[in-house]
Amino acid sequence: MERHLDEELKNLNTDLLTMAALSEEAIHKSMEALKTRNKDLAKSVIENDQRVDELENKIEEHAIEILALFQPMAKDLRFITTGMRINTDLERIADLAVNISQRVLEIADMPHLKPLIDIPKLAENAKRMVKDAIDAFVKHDEEIAKNVILSDKESNQLRTLIMQELIHSYMAKDASTVTRAVPLLLITRDLERISDHASNIAEEVIYMIEAKFVKHHPEELKFLHKKTDNS
C-alpha cells in the first residue's frame, strides 16, 4: 500500500543523496585543488558551500515537518531521525572541505614543502569512507557500514604519522617551514575529521537498519570486529 508518507520519505531521501553528492564533490575538489595548487578550484568549493548550507536547512525543515504531520513510527521514524543526523554530518564534511580549500589558498603560491604522498592517501581513505557510508545508507547494508567504522582506525594512524613527520622532520628542524607546514597539519586534521563524520554516518545507518546504538558502545564494536573478521 503506497502511503502519502512514502512520497515525503522519497523526497527526503533524494535531498539527502544530493547533499551527499555535494559533500563528496567538495572533498574531491578540495583535494584536487591541493594537489594541483588550483586556486580557482579551491574558491569554487568555498562558493558552493552556500548550496550545501541551504540544502541542509531544507532537509532539516522537511524532516521536522514530516515528524509533526505524520508522527511516523518504527523504521520510518528511524529513517527520518537518521536522515537528520546524516544531514548534519554531511554539512560538516562540506565545511571541512571548505577549510581545506582555504588552507590551499594560503599555500598555493608557496613552493612545495615536500611531495604529497601520505596526505592524498589519507584523503583517499576519508573519501572512500564517506562514499561507502552513503552507499550503506542507500543500500541499507550494515556490512558496508561496519567496514566504514573499522576504516576509521586507518585514518587515525595516517593522521598521527603525517603530523609527526611534519612536526619532527620539518617544523622542529627548520622554523622557516612552519608557514607551509601548519596549513598541511590543519588539512590533515580536517581529513581525519571527515573520516570521523563518515564513521558517524555509518553508525547512524546501523541504527537505522538494526535499531542498535553502536555509537559510544565499544562492546558492540568489538562484536563488529569479530563479525567482520569472520566474514
Binding site: 500500500m1 502511503r3 508518507l5 511516523p72 513510527m73 518504527a74 523504521k75 520510518d76 521514524l77 528511524r78 535499531a211
Partner: peptide, 19 residues
C-alpha cells in the same frame, strides 16, 4: 515496539502499511 518492533507485521501495522 514503536521504534524497533521485532515482527514485520507489527512494523507494517504501526507504520500504516497494513491493509
Amino acid at each position: 515496539i514503536f521504534t524497533a518492533p521485532k515482527d514485520k507485521r507489527t512494523e507494517d501495522y504501526i507504520t500504516g502499511r497494513y491493509g
